[in-house]
Design a protein around this nucleic acid. Structure first.
Lengths: 255, 255
DNA sequence: CGGCCGTAGTGGTCGGACCACATCTCTGGC
DNA sequence: GCCAGAGATGTGGTCCGACCACTACGGCCG
């Protein structure tokens, strides 16, 4: 193709340069073509040229506009898709996501899934900090409806012995609290830090040591603090709750 | 449709594909081919089949192994590349990153860059929580060397009036503190929350209101707390520091 | 009028070709 | 004998064109 801009030795051929790049002055060839396309689309969104939910031109058109091949453009789109910025609907088109916390922070789960060893402890440390804050905020702001939701999962968790179901309601319990805290971004991060595979990996060993009962007690304490609308008690209870797992895991790593 | 005539090969309708994968036990056709490839590679890493730093087979081989085209495989690789899981070196090969916090949390900056309005406040709220904790931890753990590094940036920041340079050292100041806290994951998240474009966007307006002097005072207070090895003071100072910006931004949004 | 169905348009996949870069190998001069 | 340079090899990067799978729209028929 015409991407052979600096052909030095065999200085002929040169079929049709054409170069659809009007802006002379330093083409600024930085990084790969695909990388540039990613940045450009991101910039378009950043500058407000592309609104959330809006549909983009077709892959073919986009590729033409940026002067690259469809293949490269597809890679760029794929990249932005996994980042939660774009959404491709087969047969329909490519759309900008709502760019909400949940969309963009979904990739956070990957971190949790691929981390192991010491980093798991670090992640739990981050979770402890955020979870305790979120629980404290929830204690101050939670509405009756939201509290009912929390209690629903608390009850369901205590009503079964199936580990899988317990884990499921455990996650929902904390998720409901995080949502009640009123900071969607924080909730989304916590969601990632509690991703299913992450919890499952740690939980497997943790609950083998009869931690069920303790978990229930800790959850009950968190719940009491929410009912009492006592942020400080809620913060302490949540911190202790996560701290328990944290300590256990830390002990596991040391042997 | 854009393509009309066929190449006129007689016998057709017979899928020349033949699918190199025997239809043995349920192909499990979930999602797109590329998406599956992404999951499979992720799983390989998760299961330890691929160690950090290790080199992967070539794109062509990988594509063959998973029974997909090179194009699709490339999209999968590109996706994992932007997620910080893989690293492609032109002419050399594809490698698994060290899977360190910095590698995986780089995408966090995208969130900050693409967020606006109320979500910016939420992000600052998260930053306040983490930054104050990190600063408190640093007060208890910082080494003389690390403290010297912090002081270097503090001095450099006070020695200039160039906004660009101030911002630069401001970031480095907080980065050094976060590193001293001893939790790389937390530091990486804070790094993302303070990404250059994010700070620049908020800073632009903030420092127009003569916030320079206040910022310097707040930094000095944080520094004093570090020197005094007083975690509680450090926590308070950091929280107040971020809180200032947070309040200002909140006020901006309300009009 | 409404549901069915065809069709145009879109993303998804494929295969092949070539280019740019990194690395190793082999050569030839010193 | 040694090492620099030229070449060969292999890898990711880019491009093209064809075709498949799905969706959405609109006209046709009952």
């Amino acid at each position: 193709m015409d991407q052979s801009e600096q052909s030095a030795p065999p200085a002929q051929t040169v079929p049709v340069q054409a170069t659809p790049v009007p802006k002379g002055a330093v083409p600024a060839q930085k990084g790969t073509v695909t990388q540039r396309a990613i940045e450009q689309i991101k910039a378009m969104i950043g500058e407000g040229l592309l609104e959330p939910g809006q549909r983009l031109p077709t892959e073919r058109d986009l590729a033409t506009q940026l002067g690259i091949s469809r293949s490269s453009m597809r890679e760029a789109i794929r990249a932005l898709t996994v980042l939660g910025v774009l959404e491709a609907r087969h047969g329909s088109g490519i759309y900008v996501t709502q760019l909400e916390a949940g969309d963009l922070l979904e990739t956070f789960g990957v971190v949790a899934d691929l981390s192991r060893g010491p980093r798991l402890v670090e992640l739990l440390e981050v979770r402890r900090v955020l979870e305790s804050t979120a629980t404290a905020l929830a204690a101050a702001r939670i509405t009756p409806d939201q509290l009912a939701d929390v209690e629903k999962h608390l009850a369901a968790m205590n009503a079964t012995d199936d580990p899988e179901e317990i884990l499921s309601h455990d996650l929902a319990f904390h998720r409901a609290i995080a949502l009640a805290a009123g900071n969607d971004t924080m909730a989304a991060i916590l969601e990632g830090l509690s991703s299913r595979t992450f919890r499952a990996r740690v939980w497997r060993g943790y609950q083998e040591e009869g931690a069920f009962e303790r978990t229930r007690r800790e959850h009950a304490r968190i719940h009491r603090a929410l009912v009492a609308r006592d942020p400080e008690a809620a913060r302490a209870a949540a911190a202790a709750h996560v701290g328990e797992v944290e300590d256990w895991l830390r002990g596991q790593l040391e042997g």
